[in-house]
């Protein structure tokens, strides 16, 4: 099996789907001539030409809206944001139009559109460039939200997203684009809304998606040395959320830690934590714990950034606390 970088997996997904369906096109800032701000779309202009790989001005509101209109009128736009931080100046198109028009029209209007791009913190970029948006978008009915942690999942999920026929937020990460994993040559799809147990264990269920998944892996390795056996669930899709998988795991481990790159208030950890206490209350041997960002914008200074950003040690401590081992 060939090893692919995360960015290559995303590129392959787009290429395969664009070869399969002429209505799919990609637009965004620097996606064509520049080959992508993070080289995700490298070579795609050469293959598909300027009709289907389209450089836009810095007009997120304008081109997100053009995507919405094009989707209503039968095309399948992939709208790339240079990062999701910049989607905010166009977010009205996503939240008011993409997410709601089908509902308001009584099901008459379809909205097959993907909004994708890097999400969440990527080092010392300051407060405006470091926001994790998955829980924000997941708040809104009418959107599906995906945040893969590995190239294989990213490829299979993006292909499903492009075929899904609905508005989808597909989160990536600057810091994961170079990450490699074996990805089969043969075509495959991963269903939206299905999580995966990526490490089986018996002591604690650790739920972690996106970059946080890798923190969980690091923590699980450290904890294994102390004889603590973590089961890691990567939900892969944020919405719809595969809560059944989590509940089933907790019925086995009786303990849970959620690692979430959101700020704490109203983040994924809050919602999943609520569902767990309601649906698995009798199975819990300890309160559910979470590791999140603090309720603070991203700082610049290296030392402050390191304090701000979740780390494996916090995950280790959280797991130990639900094991009553610290």
């Amino acid at each position: 099996m060939p090893e692919l970088q995360f960015r290559e997996a995303i590129r392959q997904a787009m290429q395969e789907e664009m070869r399969r369906n002429e209505k799919v096109f990609l637009m965004g800032e620097e996606v064509a001539e520049y080959n992508g701000a993070y080289k995700v779309s490298q070579g795609m202009l050469d293959e598909f030409g300027p009709k289907r790989i389209i450089d836009t001005p810095i007009s997120e509101l304008g081109f997100a809206g053009i995507g919405v209109g094009a989707a209503m009128n039968g095309l399948v736009p992939i709208v790339e944001f240079m990062t999701f931080n910049f989607s905010l100046v166009g977010v009205d198109q996503i939240l008011n139009n993409a997410a709601k028009i089908r509902y308001m029209s009584g099901g008459q209007v379809n909205m097959p559109i993907i909004f994708r791009g890097p999400n969440a913190a990527a080092g010392q970029l300051g407060a405006t460039h470091s926001v994790a948006f998955e829980s924000f978008f997941a708040y809104f009915p009418g959107l599906k939200v995906i945040y893969a942690s590995e190239p294989y999942d990213a490829k299979g999920l993006l292909k499903s997203a492009i075929r899904d026929g609905n508005p989808i937020i597909f989160c990536e990460s600057e810091q994961m684009y170079g990450m490699k994993q074996e990805v089969p040559d043969e075509e495959f799809l991963i269903p939206i809304g299905k999580g995966k147990i990526k490490r089986e264990g018996s002591d604690v269920t650790v739920v972690a998606h996106g970059k946080m998944y890798h923190l969980a892996v690091e923590a699980a390795k450290a904890l294994a040395k102390d004889g603590i056996d973590c089961e890691i669930i990567d939900p892969r899709t944020i919405k719809p959320f595969d809560i059944d998988l989590v509940i089933k795991s907790i019925k086995k481990t009786n303990r849970c830690v959620i690692v979430d790159e959101s700020h704490p208030f109203g983040g994924i950890a809050s919602e999943v934590g609520f569902l767990i206490q309601r649906d698995a209350f009798d199975y819990l041997d300890a309160p559910v714990q979470r590791v999140t960002l603090p309720d603070v914008p991203a700082p610049f200074a290296k030392n402050l950034y390191d304090l701000w950003y979740p780390n494996a040690k916090q995950v280790v401590d959280a797991v130990k606390s639900v094991m009553y081992k610290n």
């Binding site: 509101l61 304008g62 081109f63 997100a64 809206g65 053009i66 995507g67 919405v68 209109g69 094009a70 989707a71 209503m72 009128n73 039968g74 095309l75 009205d92 198109q93 008011n96 139009n97 028009i101 308001m104 029209s105 209007v109």
Partner: peptide, 20 residues
């Protein structure tokens, strides 16, 4: 294609219909 309640929000959408 509607009927839109957010003032101005459907202007880019009109361009998108034309784009298609």
């Amino acid at each position: 294609w509607g009927g839109h309640g957010i003032v101005g929000a459907h202007i880019p959408v009109a361009a998108g219909l034309a784009f298609a």
